[in-house]
Write a protein that binds this DNA or RNA. Sequence first.
RNA 1: GCCGAUGUGGCGAAAUGGCAGACGCAACGGACUUAAAAUCCGUUGGGCUUUAACGGCCCGUGCCGGUUCGAGUCCGGCCAUCGGCACCA
Length: 867
Amino acid sequence: MNDRRKPHPFDRIEPKWQARWDERRQFHAPNPGEAGFDPARPKYYVLDMFPYPSGAGLHVGHPEGYTATDIVARYKRFCGFNVLHPMGWDAFGLPAEQYAIRTGQHPEITTRENIARFKTQLKRIGFSYDWEREITTTDPDYFRWTQWIFLQIYNSWLNPETQRAEPISTYKDNDPDSVRLAYVAEVPVNWCAELGTVLANEEVIDGKSEVGGFPVVRRPMRQWMLRITAFAERLIDELEPLDWPVGIKLLQRNWIGKSVGAEVRYAVADRDEVITVFTTRPDTLYGGTFLVLAPENPLVDRLTTNEQRAAVENYRAQISAKSDLERTELAKEKSGVFSGAFAINPVNEKRIPIWIADYVLMGYGTGAIGGVPAHDERDLEFARKFGLPIVEVVEPANGESPTGFFGEGMAINSPLIDGLPTTQAKERITDWLEERGAGRRRINYKLRDWLFSRQRYWGEPFPIVWENGRHRSLGENELPLVPPPLDDFKPTGSGEPPLARARDWVRYSETATRELNTMPQWAGSCWYYLRFCDPRNPERFVGVEAERYWMNPSPKTVAQGTKPSTLASNSFAPGGVDLYVGGTEHAVLHLLYARFWHKVLFDLGHLSTNEPFQRLVNQGIILGEDGRKMSKRWGNVIDPLDVIADYGADAFRCYEMFMGPLEQMKPWSMAGVEGLARFLARVWRLMMEENQAGEWILSSALVATGPDKAQLKVMHATIKKVTEDIEALSFNTAIAQMMIFVNAFTAVEARPVAALRLLLILLNPFAPHLASELWESLGEKFPLSPNEITDQPWPEYEPEFLVEDEIEIVLQVNGKVRDRMIVPLEATNAELEELARKNERVREFIDGKTVRKVVVIPKKLVNVVAN
RNA sequence: GCCGAUGUGGCGAAAUGGCAGACGCAACGGACUUAAAAUCCGUUGGGCUUUAACGGCCCGUGCCGGUUCGAGUCCGGCCAUCGGCACCA
């Protein structure tokens, strides 16, 4: 590789332009009110999911999305937009803390080093970030506002009347702590002993921690929770108008998991107790032959009869000993125990047994269900195992057996609703329940409240103190609350967070102590896109004017016709980041959490839009050359800097985009990079040649004369294709078109400078160093004022150059291509048919047959149908 | 099990229902060179066919069927791979 002559001097020109861009503050986007701000320009906010600066550095997967957004950013600047294109660091996180535990090196040092490495890599790729807006979530100037936002959440509640978050002061009942959007609860949590911390459900995969793969067990602990469930409905509804991939919307909807149904109250026989269950099929109530409680349900203690107590306790002990993993692994076989108690089915007054089984989850619904074995797969399995009665109450339309039919049909054996189809039966029976106070309509969500505390050192401390067993918030003037210095970052092992070691820090006053938990890593990434709008503001998390400017659609963009929303809601205010690109791994959690925080801040009047990200695109994973996922284990990880050393940043960027559609998973190919390097070298040699001393000088083939007709056609076809493809993020085909352009101009001896200049503008977003350098070189001999590529407008194509005088018409017989002919553009359909019928090849194939029909598609083809 | 995405040459991939395989990689041939590299020009889905020559014919977009003058594209049914969820009542 090294002994090969470099095809063009990228190693010289790339650092040159990168330095120049820095000196000129080329990509700094001025805010309203700042010097250089031009209110006439529309804005465009294009954002990458900012990385966690790991010790391993970037691999070629990261820059795929970054290159895509960089192309869009540079393109939009040519189009006259004021472009916000920032980058920063999601720097709190477990790896730095674990490294600190192993080595004693403070996570701050590790983090700083990792950031430096990442930044070097990103700069070497030539991304046009506004580095003056760089932010780091571990910086006190940043996390003071993370803490401030937490206090906003802590000090508000969701008013059920308005369905909007309001200051807690508007809550008039006597226990505000019971409705705060941030609250403390004793909840069964995922405790990971190895990591010494609790984890969110989402961070637990198959009963093991997502980080490290350590075992996780359920255990009740006192934790901070965020009331995201209060926003479940809005998180579903307001997803609708967003320009996101349908698959991601679906993933979010499924995660929230809305179920519409009814709550049914069962009186317990001979006891003053009531069991409430949730069902989506109230129409099957007559088929309910038993109730099942989750083992953790507190009712179990009160209902179990003395005869059954030993058996029940034994069962509960078995269940609690199981990890979540075992519980799901053993899910194939139903287990359970009879409580000894009975309930009364409200629709028919029948006594039905109350069972306890772990297939009923405490965390969903009411932790109790009505067993309808005929029409629920799980209940059927359970009933068969324990010999419980099966009553059929829904008849399928196709005449199959009702038992084991789980779909919708017609109600039978149900006096109140017999003969009704399921939908109506549900309505009727729910009305009946509501009239008698035996139940009511109810919507349930799979989404749980967000477990927000972690027992870690390397995270944002909670701005909370405890006094007399109660929590209260710090004042805003006490922020940022910086973590205390520590030497020992290890978990204490008891579940008490490492911050407990900082005795002096913990003591807030004579009578008050600080909260010891820290926030999860998600916290910093929930609002970073807002801070980018105004990253140095010392007064506010984001300035009012900056937020309004960057987060709302430009008037021009709106005029261009964003579709009016179908959503008629008082909480609807369209806008947000114009383009957000990142991996699918954040399809659910990060996006859901960020949307939640955004809505709280919007409701409280701190923001002007109700959603953070208007348009979302997921880039696909880049696999190793062996087709496997890139990982240290397979030794197939590729470092961008190695690629750049051999082929240059421009070739790297172009290859990343040429590999295939952005959203698709695709394997890396070094030979492919070489191909793109060759393409760029061909561009270089269109304009440059070597003199006898081996120096690059302007090519003698360059001419000041205008391009000819054929050349104009290629030029305008390329403008059209590249422009449309960038808008559609189809970068691979945009590059293919530029290759066609280059191939066309390689073949000619006299190359019009105007055509080459056009190419350089179109190529600039993809290969900015090369395009800038060549543009500058052309200016030496062919002066232009102003002679700066970035001062050029994006070219517009003229359709007149694309139309031809003559066009090729395909001739088909029975749908098969048999010949083609060149005809004048203005040829009529009748003339085309006439020519087709006379065509020798066509006649050959219709010979001896009868022409049934002739299909003429103007400017395209003639199809003669004959048999 | 449920939901979603994807299936096109040796490889990465293109194709508003209208010439399948643009563009690139790899391979092969040629020019330049003492030679190689680099560069430039050409060939390259499969099969069949004495085509003097420009060639010609058939098949081909995971499989089966349908709609249509015409299907990679639309519809129905399968199969395979990948991803997500997974006792959510």
